[in-house]
């Protein structure tokens, strides 16, 4: 069952188009990592999902309701954490909890206490005296303590140290798994996302260029490393459609490919590089994919559209399977 259903979503800020014809679904219980370079439209998309921003056109349903018509009752089932969100600065953390708790029928005081302990937050401190990381932790506490069905997080790890980040990721993983939460998270902390997410979306220039399960990304994207006998390796004049990114240095060539079949890759490597001396295949990390997709997006429109084509076909296949 889709918790989030988006069709042909477009959003414009004046003449600037922030989101172009975005369509996707997020199933209940999944942890969805939304990736994209700065300015790709992630925050706009998340704000539209929360009903904080009315979309210019398209259909956005959250919890089976149009995002623009979300009521307090719907929001009582949702949690939202975003970088830069302004909590009431003159309140202490205890006052903040006291203010927020009655709004959520599912508020869990035990969980709030546990999170406060885990985050090492002093309830008597005023919000304005908290550091950036502590501020985010306080926001996270308020978002998690109601045990939301849908948790939307925009750069939630900002300012957090590695240990807390790790704690948080494990906590969210554990709770979302146990309680069936749906989590949508946009972050540049790709290592954490790789641990956390089971679905990945990649936004570039307002277009959703990738939308598929993490497992599929892991298995589909591979690094092909070739060492040729030439002093300077020669790349094919026309880059094949499934090349996401390539780089060469002397006789060495690295190509990120969107092709899971290892045998097929090895055969094609021989075609592309007849003077290959050694051919190796490595798994690509989420970071590799993100960086390659971003670079390719910046590199040229033609390449981007080739990628888009590939990714869309793949995405449709996976989504159809998931549904």
């Amino acid at each position: 069952m889709s918790v989030i259903h988006v069709r042909n979503l477009t959003h414009e800020y004046g003449k600037h188009v922030a989101l172009r014809d975005v369509s996707f679904d997020i199933e209940a219980g999944s942890v969805y990592a939304l990736l994209g370079p700065n300015g790709s439209g992630k925050t706009t998309l998340l704000q539209i999902l929360m009903g904080l921003l009315p979309q210019t056109s398209g259909q956005v349903n959250v919890l089976n309701t149009s995002a623009s018509a979300l009521t307090a009752a719907h929001r009582a089932r949702m949690g939202y954490v975003a970088e830069g969100v302004r909590l009431p600065s003159s309140m202490t953390l205890a006052q903040l909890e006291k203010y927020v708790a009655p709004l959520y029928p599912t508020w869990d005081n035990t969980l709030a206490n546990a999170l406060r302990d885990r985050f090492q937050l002093d309830p008597s401190r005023r919000i304005r005296t908290l550091s950036r990381g502590e501020h985010m932790k306080a926001a996270m506490l308020c978002a998690l303590a109601p045990r939301p069905e849908l948790l939307i997080m925009d750069e939630p790890f900002t300012g957090m140290d590695a240990v807390v980040k790790d704690d948080l990721v494990r906590g969210v993983l554990e709770m979302s798994g146990r309680e069936g939460w749906t989590v949508v998270i946009a972050s540049h902390d790709l290592a954490e996302l790789e641990l956390l997410a089971d679905w990945v979306g990649f936004l570039h220039n307002g277009r959703l260029q990738l939308h598929e399960p993490m497992e599929s990304v892991r298995s589909r994207y591979r690094w092909l490393e070739v060492i040729t006998s030439s002093r300077e390796a020669e790349l094919p004049r026309v880059k094949p459609a499934d090349w996401v990114w390539s780089e060469s240095a002397g006789p060495r060539v690295r190509v990120l490919l969107a092709e899971p079949d290892e045998e097929l890759l090895r055969r094609r490597a021989d075609e592309w590089f007849p003077d290959a001396q050694r051919v190796e295949l490595h798994d690509a990390s989420l970071r590799d994919v993100f960086v390659a997709l971003t670079r390719q997006g910046h590199a040229g429109r033609g390449a981007a559209s080739a990628l888009e084509k590939t990714a869309t076909v793949q995405s449709q296949t996976t989504r159809a399977g998931a549904v």
């Binding site: 929360m50 009752a73 959520y104």
Partner: peptide
């Protein structure tokens, strides 16, 4: 960046 619209 208002927080209150995200609350219930």
């Amino acid at each position: 960046h208002a927080w209150w619209p995200t609350l219930a």
